[in-house]
Design a protein around this nucleic acid. Structure first.
Length: 512
RNA sequence: GGCCCCAUCGUCUAGUGGUUAGGACGCAAGGUUCUCAUCCUUGCAACAGGGGUUCGAUUCCCCUUGGGGCUACCA
């Protein structure tokens, strides 16, 4: 959908003299969420602004919940938004061997250890801590047990029985401090963290470990993610330090919340990008809208293309507080971007909605240039369709409205309340004579002259004569559209053409 | 409960140690107009509260309050 723009890569180095590399790492346990898309957008903008790379990594270590159809949805919709990633997609499910190597390293060095506490024991410990108002963390005594400090890649049998253990990391005593590009210094006490679990076994890492390894191996320079990950950061830093690896820079962006200030979820309406696509939001509008949720370039300009956003974006202008998702503003952005589209492009994007509304169909034999009106079997051209769409370009808020808005162009019989034809306090006689007059005038207009300007030149003086133009123009507009709100009558006449227009006026005449 | 993050109109935000606190969405009124939409004009509307620091705080500091996040052998 979006223009094919080439963004240079790899020229600028960050302050550690490394190229800027960022990533979006969605988990395919659901469709592409608007929040994930926004995080992807900020990563993309940061990367492209700094001539760096933006990677896509699928975090599918949770085999139970990860589904291929979700991965497909994520990939398709990221593409649709125009957030193109560099290189291949990395899938964590295919990297077990890599993780196993690091797990072994951690075990060998004694930084990690097997823990055989049962879930019940752990739960009991938590309850006790909760009761005492203490942090609910587990400092595991098994790390001191030399018999369990084995380096085998396989789980050593517990001396306590056959319990299947997990692998925990020894929590250091020193506090963890880090600098966040958006929030500044953040410090965590390790006493609040404990010896946390890093892997289910020697092959299967948990989230925090997998993230650290992948970020390191793909040389990620900046971790830009939602601020719900702030509390994961000290854990990831502990892992990094246990492995003697350098840390990336962190930037935690504010979350976007629903109007009731809770986490954006299904019950607030659409959360999936796919849904917004189907409703008829433009990717351009979604991008523009999402970028303004938690970020602002400072000036008074609000309508931006993705390319312009890349030029403007700096992380210093990121907001610290959460932004509330405001659908009205999205609608406004969408309207603006619809009006900015070329007529050809807008028509192209409207066609699927017109087809969906069962108004038109592509003609099979033609090379997608011809269409037919389903109700009349009439053949129509793309350029005629463009004329129709043009009349609604400034009225449409969402593409899905096109069917409703332009339906009258594609129907032979208009169904409207007769009373709708009446302008203000016109009598039936007056109405009849207006319609008769319209029919007579228009029958004498050459069909070549059925263009807006000429029709206006012919009909306006007549309308003027009637003191209140509405006495002629309102019945005209209703008779040819059947609607109480529509584009102007001259435009509609010109698109309809003489034959169809006269038929409609005749219909009105007959019904009166 | 514990830890962490956050705080300017209803919403998105700009902004400064001294401003009539600016813009946008939405809303209201008006203009254009045969209707709707677009467009134009105008209006309504905010520095959470309390202490400091200071000649002066919306701005800097602290506390309170409020909101959010995390607290899994999910990610």
């Amino acid at each position: 959908m979006s223009k094919n723009i080439h963004y240079p890569e790899n020229n600028i180095k960050n302050r550690n003299n490394q190229p800027v590399i960022v990533r979006i790492a969605p988990s395919p346990t659901g469709t592409l969420h608007i929040g994930t898309a926004r995080t992807a957008l900020f990563n993309f903008l940061f990367a492209k602004h700094n001539e760096g790379r933006f990677y896509l990594r699928i975090e599918d270590t949770d085999i139970e919940r990860s589904k291929p159809e979700f991965e497909k949805d994520i990939i398709e919709n990221l593409r649709w938004l125009g957030l193109k990633w560099s290189g291949r997609i990395l899938r964590q499910s295919q990297r077990r061997k890599v993780y196993a190597k690091y797990i072994k390293k951690l075990l060998d060095s004694g930084r990690a250890f097997w823990c055989y506490h049962t879930k019940e024991e752990l739960e009991e410990e938590k309850q006790g801590q909760a009761g005492r108002g203490e942090a609910q963390v587990h400092f595991c005594e098994h790390k001191h047990d030399s018999r369990r400090g084995q380096t085998s890649a396989n789980s050593p049998r517990s001396v306590l029985g056959a319990a299947k253990g997990v692998i925990r990391l020894k929590c250091p005593a020193n506090n963890i401090k880090f600098h966040d590009l958006i929030r500044g210094e953040i410090e965590f006490q390790t006493s609040q963290i404990g010896d946390f679990v890093i892997a289910k076994d020697a092959q299967n890492p948990l989230y925090n470990l997998a993230v650290v390894i992948d970020d390191y191996e793909t040389k990620v320079s900046h971790v830009i993610r939602g601020d719900d990950h702030i509390s994961n950061t000290p854990k990831q830093i502990i892992i990094l330090e246990s492995l003697a690896l350098a840390r990336p820079q962190y930037a935690h962006i504010p979350l976007t919340l629903a109007p009731d200030k809770t986490k954006l979820s299904k019950r607030h309406g659409a959360t999936a990008i796919q849904e917004y696509k189907e409703i008829g939001y433009l990717p351009e509008a979604l991008i523009n809208f999402m970028s303004f949720l938690g970020w602002n370039p400072g000036g008074e300009k609000e309508i931006f293309t993705l390319e312009e956003l890349v030029g403007e974006f700096t992380i210093e202008q990121m907001q610290r507080s959460a932004a509330i998702f405001n659908i009205e503003k999205l609608d406004w952005f969408n309207g603006c971007h619809i009006r900015q589209l070329s007529l050809r492009e807008l028509t192209k994007r409207c066609i699927p909605y017109l087809e969906n509304a069962k108004l038109i169909q592509k003609e099979k034999n033609e090379k997608c240039k011809k269409f037919k009106i389903l109700s009349t079997n009439e053949s129509i051209s793309l350029s005629w369709l463009e004329k129709v769409v043009r009349l609604e370009q400034e009225r449409m808020k969402k593409l899905s409205e096109i069917g409703e808005l332009t339906g009258f162009f594609f129907r032979d019989e208009l169904t409207y309340e007769l009373e709708l034809l009446r302008w203000k306090d016109m009598t039936k006689q007056e109405l009849k004579s207006s319609i008769d007059k319209l029919y007579n005038i228009l029958s004498n207009v050459n069909s070549r002259d059925f263009v807006t300007d000429k029709l206006s030149a012919i009909l306006m003086p007549e309308a003027e004569k009637m003191k209140d133009r509405g006495r002629l123009l309102w019945p005209l507009r209703v008779s040819i559209t059947g609607l109480k709100a529509s584009p102007g009558p001259f435009e509609v006449l010109s698109v309809l053409g003489k034959e169809r227009a006269l038929k409609r006026i005749k219909d009105a005449q007959m019904r009166l």
